[in-house]
Amino acid sequence: MASAGEERKRRNELRRELIDKFPRDRSSLLPALHYLEETFSFLPDWGIEVLGWHLGVPPSEVYGAATSYTELSLSIPSHKTVIVCDGVACREKGAIQILEFLKEKNIDGVEIKTTDCAFMCSVAPAVSVGHTWYGRQVPDNSLAELIEG
């Protein structure tokens, strides 16, 4: 927990940054949310609040918008995330086997997620490790190494 003073300091800092970067207009909302996420790797509650103040939009509405977008995250990513595409095309090329393989491997500190399409179906199956996508993956140790490494 930050002390009251520190808390105010970091709010003020963020506020100044937002004032510099984004016009006080509701249309800045999504770009500013992206900015928050880039800065903090998720959307912290106090950040949403500061953004709301800056834009003149009630925090609940900023939050309402933020939660409507599937690609913004509202909590700190606690683990290294591995995303396995289990879309139709990737399933054709073995996505399910990859999922089963990874489940069995149960690599420490790794959270396995799925997505419905990674939009690179032509190099299916696709797996993302830490923000990079890899195509034509096979359920073998090279994949496990990639994830561990």
Partner: peptide
Amino acid sequence: FIGAIDVLGS
């Protein structure tokens, strides 16, 4: 124009 509540999530 208070905005205490909103539809959240999808």
